[in-house]
Design a protein around this nucleic acid. Sequence first.
DNA 1: CTGTTCACG
DNA 2: GACGTACGTGAACAGG
Length: 933
Amino acid sequence: MTAPPTLMLVDGSGYIFRAYHSLPPMSRPDGTPVNAVYGFTTMLLKLLADMKATHLAVLFDAGRHTFRNEIYPAYKAQRPDPPADLIPQFPLIREAVRAFNVPCLEREGLEADDLIATYAARARATGAQVVIVSSDKDLMQLVRDGVSLLDPMKNRAIGPDEVREKFGVDPDKVVDVQALAGDPVDNVPGVPGIGVKTAAQLITTYGDLETLLARAGEIPQPKRRQSLLEHADNARLSRRLVTLRDDVEVSETLEDFALGAPDPGVVRSFLTENGFRSLLKRVEATLDTAPDPASPDTPAAVAQGVESVPDDYHLVTTLEDLDAWIAEAHASGVVAVDTETNSLKARHATLVGVSLAPRPGRACYIPFAHRAPKTEGLDLEGEGAGAAVTNIEDKDKALARLGALLADPSVLKVGHNIKFDLHVLAGAGLDTVTPLDDTMVLSFVIDGSRHGHGMDELAQRHLGRTTIPFEAVCGKGKNQITFDLVPLDQAVRYAAEDADVTLRLHVVLRQALLAARLVRVYETLDRPMIPILARMEQTGVVVDAVRLKTLSGEFARRMADLETEIHALAGRPFNVASPKQLGEVLFDDMGLPGGKRSSKTGAWSTDAQVLDTLAGEGHALPALVLDWRQYAKLKSTYTDALVEDIDRATGRVHTTYSLSVTTTGRLSSNDPNLQNIPIRSEDGRKIREAFVAPPGFCLMSADYSQIELRLVAHVAAIRALREAFAQGQDIHAITAAQVFGVPLEGMDPMVRRRAKAINFGILYGISAHGLAVQLGISRGEAGAFIAAYMARFPEIQTFMETIKEQARAQGFVETPFGRRIPIPGINDRNPAARAFAERQAINAPIQGGAADIIKRAMIRLPDALSEAGLGARLLLQVHDELVLEVPEAEIDATRDTVRRVMSTTVALTDAQGVTTVPLDVDVGVGPSWAEAH
DNA sequence: CTGTTCACG
DNA sequence: GACGTACGTGAACAGG
């Protein structure tokens, strides 16, 4: 027989205030106050170190409004706001709890005490011992056989004797005493003239509250009798207020609170980030010890220790050895894979070697194309002294066996940015890698932009391990060598480590994904995007080089003409491309008014807005510079650069998409960026004419109409906007009619334009100044527009307040699909920084939600097209637009399928499953992107 | 390597 | 009453 489990339930909210008031102000290097965080963390460490508990959870109050306010509005109503320097510590304290792998719970409308009562009752029913960690007397009512209280400040146990000492009655009568005595601190009325002492005496005499009230007439003291008769209802009300609910519907069971070892990386980074160096030192010893014996099978326990397995790395040069490693991968069901190449351009890289890691610590490196350094002279198969180079024997067979492993559905392949490896492997003829997992994408889903997701950084953070830097193996600068020239002993250490670290990170991050409840986001939104994007990148888009070169020439001529004119007007030649020199010409030489100096460097500002203002005042030079700048931009960034990006082999441009760059969950595109090809200006638009379809095909562009505004209408439940979208109306015109009270028919385009600007402002977390700048009106006018908008669509304010509150409390906001977006500055001391974070908090769920939607459509689309027997191929994604190349004979059918998939894969519905806002898709077709869009 | 500018959604 | 301001990217260029 083993001892019964012991569940500790910590009253988190109560402890925060005590820690705050008992410690002097402390702050970390960035200025964030942390005294309460420090006190709290110390207490938590102590509880964990004492090892008295087998199960642990920390409970918090959620918001100030609880069901008790429904019963009695004055309850705790006069409590002052928490001190300003405590507010930013609330989310940090929750982070502390999670960092130590302890469940952390709160529930809207309930106090922490109610959750404690509920979990205590449930645990007790299973035979567990319960220890409530709190010094709040309100919890004394819960003391009974199997349930005790622990005061963490005084480290004093509170049992029935201590309760009787405090309240003069048994624990089960505590609420009756409190009902009579009341509590001025919490605004519990009680019965006037009766304190704890009298109440205890009365309850002892009469047995319980109801009996006492029924027989109040028998009380000899006239004043006491009258007060009781008069305030009997107050006593009953008070009893309801102080009685804790132990019947909250909860889904957690005792097992969910089982103590598991924390992730040492998470603990380290939490303590480091908050400057708790002494605490880090104290816990360091315990972090590397064996898994917690109390629960060796919890996922956390599995993750724990993954960083301390010793390295066991091998070079593989025979098929026999290779087969043994493949067998290990089959046995474990998972293998981390990393490819080494001679280039960062995955599609052009040749496969130099492959590393495999079937178990933490165990990894091998298989060289395929290593060479001896040239300096040794003629050296055919690496027989030269000291520079023996032996690649794997029989490369074709080796590749085939590797290919079979990669394609085997029973073995999970893990990579760090595995999309890169997919391209490299495809180049070597291995084009099926499934199923797959990506530690970079996992890290992004869990932590977003809180930190980078490079392997070296993650290894440091989660495994406390410094990996061998690439430079240490290949050098840097002009002396850098390619990986095929790296000596094999070094190559093994570096490459095997990469696979090994990837596998170890996979263990840690999968566990973290589960703990953060983000499995669904990863599985349905990001993971399936990896092969989709790989295919789009591989396909590429045809770009007409001749057309671009012609445009380049045209732009160059115009620039030359403009430059001559500009120099003439300036009276001297200067570098038009230099903002510094231009500023001197405009504001020093010519002495034009209205110059602004940048706050950082003190240089004259010469951006488009400044030049535009000057041009508007009739100055010729600034207007010419604006023109010149436009051509310079188009030429250098697009027409010249894009030609260089055309792949000689395919005649196409192949961008690289990233899933783990943006703060909101959007994709990003680079090398080249195909998400910012010009469209707004006439000249810029011509660049899109160079994006064309191959013979027999045409380009199709399908874009979501107003997707972000629809999401606002959905998320913020703005009735008027929902209806307008449902009826397919012109949303900006409707807004104008509502806000400015003008009729829809014959509307002044200027009025509509203003409404449109306000709608965009809403998406960005509107400010009067921002809107004023955008519309060229005064801040006062802009403020009046915003006020009118808020009055017409009041739901928007609730949405904004709610989302900001969520950001403040949790440090992140969520898209409607559950993606988490950290908002780090939300509790910043600096009001401007805080305001910025608040606008981010408002925009993030909208922009991120739209990104989630188009991801779902992209994941679904290729299958839908092939199910329909269509040969269209996805080429590009530009946030709300998809570009495909479509066989000319299949245009109509493809248009139908694309529109259906994009508008129905995700439905925006209310709690009843009724669609709130439809998703509309505009589809265009043409020989070039310019004509399709 | 940083700051400025500007292309896109 | 002062202060600094729309959200999210990537790339080219100047200048230290």
